[in-house]
């Protein structure tokens, strides 16, 4: 081979190898952060964890306590957020997939806006609920927090419902309609049954997303250092307590914040990994 051509080939091979090295290094770089963050959270959290976390309420500085009230508040608000957001999201997703065929522009613009809402900053949704609800009612409340969370669940469920329904084979719709079944029954009894795993995955992913959500709760649910069953008043939540305690100068509060971080991380990991595994399993079953 001519020396110049050989040099060129070597240079190209070298560049190729170098790019592969950089790509691998970038992946390791990304993964190392994941490992670092999870290790720090889980190790510190495990050290701070104990039964008192679940039985005692958040303490004043200098006293011992747990996170019971915050866990309860988070649980209730997440549940309500999903209870409000998921049905609306499923309905909207169904409309986009099944009932908007005569209005393609309208349909595409809703899809477009939904995609934007999906990545819109959550703090802005909190401000929205603050101005239209908290300010009008005159006080912070768990209900307002749940409303803010439902606005975060909504676009996630809209999108997954829309996408899974579109995957349902047209044959099913045609078969059901040819029996003379009205469309709403076709949708509820045939299409939803076929799309259930996908829709459920969307709801779980929505739940995972609001579990650690903090910013919108700051000006809707605020916080509450005592146990409260009244969702119409200020309500405590784990992420907001983590924020308050981690920023404080007290070691006992830091330790509780780590315990909260541990719980939140575990719940989010279980929900998001579980949702994906669930979907994967169902896809495999239906393929088999």
């Amino acid at each position: 081979m001519v020396p110049a051509a050989r040099a060129l080939m070597l240079r190209r091979r070298g560049r190729n190898l170098f790019s592969k090295f950089l790509g691998t290094a970038a992946t390791l770089f990304g993964l190392s952060w994941l490992v670092w963050i999870l290790l720090v959270t889980l190790l510190n959290g495990a050290r701070a964890l104990g039964p008192h976390i679940f039985t005692e309420i958040t303490p004043p500085p200098g006293a011992a306590g747990g996170l019971a009230n915050a866990l309860f508040g988070s649980f209730m608000m997440s549940l309500m957020g999903v209870a409000i957001g998921a049905p609306l999201g499923i309905a909207a997703g169904t409309y986009l997939s099944e009932f908007a065929e005569r209005r393609p522009i309208w349909r595409e613009s809703i899809r477009f806006v939904n995609d934007i809402l999906l990545s819109a900053p959550s703090i802005v949704l909190g401000l929205f609920v603050y101005t239209i609800y908290v300010r009008q009612v005159g006080h912070f409340s768990g209900i307002a927090g749940a409303l803010a969370l439902s606005l975060i669940v909504l676009p996630v469920v809209v999108r997954t419902t829309d996408e899974t329904l579109r995957l349902v084979p047209n044959m099913m719709r045609e078969a059901a309609l040819s029996l003379g079944i009205p469309r709403w029954k076709v949708t509820v009894q045939v299409l939803y049954r076929a799309a259930l795993p996908g829709i459920l995955t969307g709801v779980l992913l929505g739940l995972a997303r609001i579990t650690g959500e903090t910013a919108p709760l700051l000006f809707t649910a605020l916080n509450n250092q005592f146990w409260s069953n009244d969702l119409n008043g200020p309500t405590s939540s784990v992420p907001v307590v983590i924020f308050q305690f981690a920023m404080s100068p007290y070691d006992a509060w830091h330790s509780l914040a780590w315990a909260g971080a541990f719980v939140v991380t575990m719940v989010v990991l279980v929900l998001s990994v579980g949702a994906r595994a669930f979907l994967l399993k169902n896809r495999m079953d239906s393929n088999a």
Binding site: G30, L34, I37, G212, P239, A246, W258, V268
Partner: peptide, 16 residues
């Protein structure tokens, strides 16, 4: 695993 990085709540990033 990389997607998991997106799932970690922002408050956990903050504390870490």
């Amino acid at each position: 695993a990389i997607e998991l990085l997106a799932g970690i709540p922002s408050i956990i990033y903050g504390m870490w």
